[in-house]
Design a protein around this nucleic acid. Structure first.
Lengths: 241, 241
DNA sequence: GAGTGGTCTAGACCACACT
DNA sequence: GTGTGGTCTAGACCACTCG
């Protein structure tokens, strides 16, 4: 087992090792991982110990267990993201992927904050994209997306179709970078002139600002995204206990 | 075991039964429940099966396990509530319970919406309280609280001190009603004149509106609460994957 | 029918808390 | 030391999937 803490219980070592093997790409999203029996014999532990390890991985959403079929690497779907709380005025709740329109792509000198978020050095450049998310012709969100030019520079010259409809699969397919999770932050502000223009609203309109830092399995920041949407289309729901 | 589905696996039956016994008040918040060995013999299953059941209860936050000491009924602390994302301008993050000031208590005819939320009949009255949550003299939140008059009527005549600093312990102590969980909803709006006045802001200021329906173990709604706070003091953070 | 995960058992031994 | 929960074993049998 590669560099797992030997003081930890065996089931945690096994959990960490399987997670590392997935992160390393030994099993990719959608793949079936080894069976319980195989893992039991290859790790040299009882099957109950393997079960304890994979139970935790399933709980954390890293794998999915399918009775009679096997255990599969789960693709991150960000179903809990703040984005899904944006609704059109009609408020019907079909789970659609809104269509995207990329307005611009450019090479920029990032701000201090963007550099900090992406872990860039003083001289590093960054790719900036502006994208609209729409549904039935109405603009839902206006997104400002920042990427390290060193990692993602070629994205500037790619065909737009290769970046549709979702960016994360494109990051994986063309750059081998897998978004494992993200940290999101939400606040309320008034729309600046360019944001208001893109959203089809008046300058100073109430907007929700969502920031997202997307991270890979090795905790490396991949993408910094600032999204704006009209506040009156936002309803967030959560259960607490 | 009282009315648990016999088609379910034993460990789930046991989990449901223990949850029911807690809900029924057989063990109260802070109490130690029976030990694994006791549960194992009283339910007539192996200790591993009991462990599976209590593991799930601990995972759901209903009990806490303490190595060498026992298993304890957890008190709901609502640490994930939207409330905790309100910060003063200074943004320091000590976990304080803001002081409360109850502005009014009255018996009212509830609106159709309030009746629906609390499950009240056409002729039922309701208790309405207005409360401010403050920190260092600054108003953080303005809360409008609705309760069934049939269940909580005597609260109108109680000493204010008995309702301080938190309401949920008072519900439990004086009325035997335990808040088990809550559903919260967040949106953004502009402040009405009375809300603006209480928050010390101008009418039309951007505010965050938080609705909360608090529920007991038997899924009965206990309290309907509408809270408002200044939007520029609100920052919500969440991890997604 | 062969292979997979899901449930359950009856123990052993370890680590922690209290007195 | 006694009692508690935490880890781990080596099986048995069941339920589901697929060829």
């Amino acid at each position: 087992m590669t560099k797992v803490d030997p003081r930890l219980p065996r089931y945690q070592q096994i959990r960490d090792d399987i997670a590392a093997r997935i992160a390393k790409g030994e099993w990719r999203a959608g793949d079936a991982i080894a069976t319980e029996a195989e893992l039991s014999s290859s790790y040299g532990v009882a099957i109950g110990t393997v079960r304890r390890a994979v139970d935790e991985l399933a709980n954390d959403g890293l794998i999915e267990r399918a009775h009679g079929r096997g255990m599969f690497v789960r693709r991150a779907d960000f179903s809990t993201s703040l984005f899904r709380f944006f609704r059109l005025g009609t408020g019907d709740s079909r789970p659609v992927i809104p269509e995207s329109r990329i307005l611009s792509r450019s090479l920029e000198t990032p701000s201090v904050e963007t550099r900090a978020k992406l872990g860039l050095g003083r001289k590093d450049n960054a790719v900036r994209m502006i994208r609209l998310r729409m549904d039935e012709g109405r603009v839902l969100l206006r997104e400002e997306i920042w990427l390290s030019a060193r990692l993602f520079g070629p994205i500037l010259d790619m065909e737009v179709e290769q970046l549709m409809p979702l960016l994360y699969p494109a990051y994986e397919q063309h750059f081998g970078r897998i978004v494992a999770r993200a940290r999101e932050r939400l606040r309320v502000e008034t729309a600046s002139p360019d944001i208001a223009l893109d959203l089809g609203a008046a300058t100073g309109a109430m907007v929700v600002r969502m920031e997202r830092l997307a991270i890979d399995h090795a905790d490396m920041p991949l993408e910094w995204r600032i999204s704006h949407g009209l506040a009156d289309q936002f309803v967030y729901e959560v259960d607490v206990h």
